[in-house]
Amino acid sequence: MNCPDCGNERTRVIDTETSADGTSVRRRRECQRCSFRFTSYERPEWDSLQVKKRDGSIESFDFEKLRAGIERAVEKRHVPEEDVTNLVEEVESDLQSRETRIVSSSLVGDLVSERLRELDQVAYIRFVSVYKAFSEPEEFLRELDAVLDSKLDASSSIDSTDKSDTS
């Protein structure tokens, strides 16, 4: 810690005190050259997002890791690179806007799933089959049925709208 008065690098800690809430440390320091005394504060840095995995471990949010997972899901699909970038940025932005710096991996997976379902349904199925770790073919089939049902519902509502427009 440099002295704010003379810029000397050699300072010593005279007193250390933890804040009442335990979130910061206050240190009284003295410059060894000019004897100027000053106070510094230490707080944890939470600039980056942290992801809590299913096993309880915590790791830094990795934009490229998320992108790689999405790219695997959209592989050989006609999904523009720009759409993948936008999806990853939307998920990251959504996570950053939350009040907590530690988010669960299941929240990340849910946010990606939501957006992938709108973007490309085959990519969505690929993603959730890995994300939800389907262990039985029936689980895969249930998810596929849900996608097909929503697609049929959407097409039937479009058909009924078209018919009402022509009447």
Rank of each mutant, 00 (worst) to 15 (best):
I70W: 01
R26F: 02
E45V: 14
L119N: 02
S167R: 11
N8L: 10
E139N: 04
G56N: 04
V25N: 02
R67Y: 04
R10F: 14
E136Y: 09
V13K: 01
D162V: 15
R115D: 01
S155G: 08
L107T: 04
S19Y: 06
V88I: 06
E45D: 15
L119H: 04
Q121I: 09
L66G: 00
V108L: 01
R29Y: 04
E143C: 05
Y41D: 01
D62V: 08
D55I: 09
S155K: 14
S150R: 14
R26T: 00
D21K: 04
S57V: 06
S167P: 14
I125V: 15
R43K: 15
E59I: 08
S57E: 12
E71V: 11
E90G: 02
S97F: 08
S105E: 07
F61S: 06
Y41A: 00
S129L: 09
V91P: 00
V79Y: 05
E75A: 14
S160P: 07
S155L: 15
E82L: 11
C31W: 02
R26W: 03
L152R: 14
L111A: 08
R72K: 12
S93R: 07
R77K: 08
S24P: 06
R33I: 13
E64N: 13
S35W: 08
E75V: 12
L152F: 10
D149M: 12
V108C: 00
E114K: 11
I70H: 00
S24F: 07
R28K: 01
E114A: 08
S129E: 08
R126F: 05
S60Y: 10
E75G: 07
L152A: 14
G109Y: 05
R43Y: 09
L66N: 00
D165Y: 13
T100D: 13
E9Y: 10
R126Y: 08
P4S: 05
D165R: 13
V130A: 02
D21N: 10
L144R: 05
F36P: 03
D83S: 11
S167K: 14
S129H: 07
I58E: 09
S164A: 15
E139Y: 06
D153R: 11
D5E: 15
G56V: 00
G7M: 06
A68G: 14
S156M: 15
S40P: 07
A20V: 12
C3N: 01
Y41H: 04
S167T: 13
P137M: 15
V147N: 01
N2R: 13
E59R: 10
D153V: 10
W46I: 14
V128K: 07
L119T: 04
A123P: 02
V122K: 07
E99C: 05
S135N: 12
E30R: 00
K76G: 00
E138G: 07
D83A: 11
S93I: 05
A123D: 04
K76Y: 04
I58T: 06
A123V: 05
T18M: 11
S156P: 08
E30P: 05
V25H: 02
R101Q: 11
L111F: 02
F140I: 02
K76I: 12
T166R: 14
T100W: 03
T39F: 01
E90L: 10
G69S: 12
D94K: 12
S106D: 15
A154N: 10
E42M: 04
D110Y: 06
R43S: 03
I58A: 07
S150C: 09
